[in-house]
């Protein structure tokens, strides 16, 4: 366990029901989730989760509904208590915290954004944003000052005295985000934070989150059922199914080497042109023309530029240095290769 690990889950399991410990023992002996539900009336939430969450990175936990992802994220601030296992934050097992210490932990160190916003309807935007600060007994005047900074950060200046019900869904979730950022917590939990928003707004919010993250470098744990969202936001992606982690890796590696058949099927329909970036394809050469691509630009966004270009196009790194060049042919080949790899893989697995 290196220094850059913020949260470490060690063999965390969760069974819902009155006799969870014995039910877990049955699972450990090989009983399946369905059998447990039918014979014992207990629900298996998570089983044997081992996960490292890196400091300052965005870790996406991905899975379909019922996979246990919402259960997992609620373990990180102990809204749900595990049946067994350890949860270390900065090397300290948070399961050892007493009620008072747990409250302090939640007030100072970790904050959360909710799927359905969970704002207080009878409080204004600003009052909602400073909720966590007031809970922490920050004096109201100082809290308001810090709150206004967050309101500005998420682009809601001028709306601070409105009520949540007067705002659109996207704006409400910005309030939720500002509320989570206001306590200056190092860890930000986002439980399907953008799933309730319509696609255009969702994309705006994703971009805004990336922007904010580039500035603040929080340790973000983001839950989603949407692979595109996971690939867009996640430095690391953990794929969860039926309470078990199937694969934890970077988005690129999961696309290239799905760990099993389930993950393979999951990533099959992803539009790679939207995920793969120009940077890794750049090869030494001399660009023709003045147009340049950015290394972090997706292949899809490069299509129109390629179509208009005559020869190889230069790719620039973030600092403006020339990485190399790409040609339309190269991009096509990259996509075809991926496609072939994918079809052989899916073919062999099914």
């Amino acid at each position: 366990m290196g220094n850059n690990i913020k949260i470490y889950l060690e063999n965390v399991s969760k069974v819902f029901g009155p006799d969870a410990l014995n039910a877990l023992a049955l699972i450990d002996k090989g009983m399946t989730k369905t059998e447990l539900l039918e014979k014992k009336g207990h629900v298996l939430g998570l089983h044997g989760i081992n996960l490292e969450i890196e400091t300052g990175k965005t870790t996406v936990i991905m899975g379909l509904s019922g996979s246990g992802k919402s259960t997992l994220i609620r373990h990180l601030n102990r809204l749900i208590e595990p049946t067994s296992g350890r949860i270390l934050v900065d090397g300290e097992d948070i399961l050892n915290l007493n009620a008072l210490e747990l409250r302090q932990f939640r007030r100072k160190k970790i904050s959360m954004v909710f799927q359905k916003f969970a704002l207080l309807p009878h409080k204004t935007v600003l009052e909602n944003v400073i909720y966590g600060l007031l809970i922490d007994k920050v004096p109201p005047h100082a809290a308001k000052e810090r709150g206004m900074a967050q309101v500005e950060l998420v682009g809601l200046s001028g709306f601070e005295n409105n009520f949540p019900g007067q705002l659109s869904g996207g704006m409400q979730q910005r309030v939720g985000l500002a509320r989570a950022l206001a306590t200056d917590a190092e860890i930000l939990l986002m439980d399907e934070a953008f799933s309730a928003l319509d696609p255009l707004i969702r994309h705006d919010m994703q971009m805004q989150l990336r922007e904010i993250q580039a500035r603040l470098h929080k340790t973000i744990v983001f839950i989603t059922h949407d692979l595109d969202e996971a690939l867009l936001l996640g430095d690391k992606i953990a794929i969860l199914k039926d309470g078990i982690l199937r694969q934890v890796d970077t988005g690129m590696n999961i696309l290239k080497n799905p760990a099993d058949d389930y993950v393979g099927r999951f990533v099959r329909d992803v539009n790679r042109a939207r995920i793969l970036t120009c940077g890794p394809l750049a090869q030494p050469g001399t660009p023709t023309g003045d147009t340049r691509l950015n290394a972090e630009q997706t292949l899809e966004s490069a299509f129109p530029i390629m179509a208009a270009a005559q020869g190889p196009i230069g790719v620039l790194a973030n600092d403006g240095a020339l990485l190399g060049v790409v040609t339309a042919r190269q991009i096509m080949e990259a996509l075809i290769q991926q496609d072939r790899a994918k079809s052989t893989l899916v073919g062999s697995d099914i």
Binding site: L79, R103, R106, Q115, A118
Partner: peptide, 27 residues
């Protein structure tokens, strides 16, 4: 009262009394 709002309150470190006075009672 909406469970998610109560959960949010707890997630920000509210004590049971604070949950009552800031969320449950007003709603």
């Amino acid at each position: 009262v909406d469970v998610e709002i109560v959960e949010a309150s707890r997630a920000f470190g509210a004590s049971p009394m604070q949950v009552l006075t800031t969320v449950q009672a007003p709603l």
